[in-house]
């Protein structure tokens, strides 16, 4: 488990979390490189199909933030 590297897809709202993740970069905060960000125009865009599809494609986790 210790060197398990999960693949997590993160759906980030363009207006808040996406910008916050940009700022995390500006602040040089360090975090594990497991996330792949998909930019969406608003968390309202988040469709259950995306969760199901992502899990179906084999990702280990789905993170929606906005």
């Amino acid at each position: 488990m210790a060197d398990w590297e999960p693949k997590i897809v993160s759906f980030f709202c363009n207006w808040c979390t996406y910008g916050a993740a940009d700022l995390a970069g500006v602040g040089r905060m360090q975090y594990p490189p497991y996330f792949r960000v998909v930019r969406i125009p608003c968390t309202g865009r988040m469709h259950p199909k995306f969760f199901l599809s992502a899990l179906r494609e084999g990702v280990d986790g789905v993170w929606v933030s906005g």
């Binding site: 940009d22 970069g25 490189p33 960000v37």
Partner: peptide, 11 residues
Amino acid sequence: NIRNHDSWVHK
């Protein structure tokens, strides 16, 4: 976004 979300956070 390979800077803010990548190079800067996985130095």
